Amino acid sequence: MSRLDQSLWAIFRAPLLVAVLSLAGLLLALFIDGPGDVVASALLASVIVATAWALARRRC
């Protein structure tokens, strides 16, 4: 599938998911102490992992 054939949903699905995960992680870290900090860290780390995966996939 070429990039011209993709719908807007297909193009913006991954960036929207990254934005939602990072916003959820930041809000959890801000408002919830204790176990919420672990979940917030995992959410924020998932954004970094997804970005690294996308960059590595693009270079291959």
Rank of each mutant, 00 (worst) to 15 (best):
W9T: 15
S2L: 01
L27C: 07
L16N: 05
A19G: 03
A45F: 02
G36Q: 07
D5V: 04
G25H: 01
L43E: 02
Q6N: 09
V39G: 04
G36A: 09
I32S: 09
R58L: 13
L8C: 12
A56E: 02
A24P: 07
T51A: 14
L17E: 10
A50D: 08
F12D: 07
L44E: 05
S2K: 04
S2C: 02
I48V: 09
I32G: 07
S7Y: 06
R59C: 06
V18F: 03
L30T: 08
R13H: 10
I11V: 15
S22W: 02
A54L: 05
W53Y: 12
R58N: 13
L43S: 00
L30Q: 09
V20F: 01
A50S: 12
R59P: 02
D5A: 10
Q6K: 12
S41Y: 15
G25W: 01
L43D: 01
V47Q: 03
G25T: 01
Q6V: 09
R13D: 11
R59N: 11
L16Y: 03
L8T: 12
L28I: 00
L16S: 10
V39R: 03
L23I: 13
L55H: 05
I48N: 01
A40C: 04
L43R: 00
S46E: 09
W9Y: 13
M1A: 15
L30K: 08
D33K: 08
V47M: 05
L30V: 05
A29H: 07
A52V: 07
A19K: 01
F12R: 08
G34V: 09
A40L: 02
L44M: 12
A42H: 00
S41D: 13
L21A: 10
S46K: 09
L16I: 07
V38N: 09
A19W: 04
V20P: 00
V39L: 11
A10Q: 15
R58S: 12
I32K: 10
L17P: 01
L55G: 04
L44C: 10
R57N: 15
G34T: 08
G36N: 06
A54V: 03
L26R: 11
V38T: 13
S22T: 03
L21N: 07
P35G: 03
I11E: 11
V39E: 04
A56T: 00
V47R: 01
R13P: 06
R59L: 15
V49L: 14
L30E: 08
C60M: 15
A14H: 14
D37M: 14
R3E: 15
I48W: 03
L16W: 04
L8V: 13
D5K: 04
I11M: 13
R3Q: 15
V20K: 00
D5Y: 02
D33H: 09
V39T: 09
V49G: 08
L43G: 02
V39D: 06
D5P: 03
L16M: 09
G34R: 09
P15R: 03
A10C: 14
D33V: 06
L8Y: 11
S41K: 15
L8E: 10
A54M: 02
A19L: 07
V18K: 01
R58H: 13
W53N: 08
A56Q: 04
L44Q: 07
I48P: 00
L17K: 06
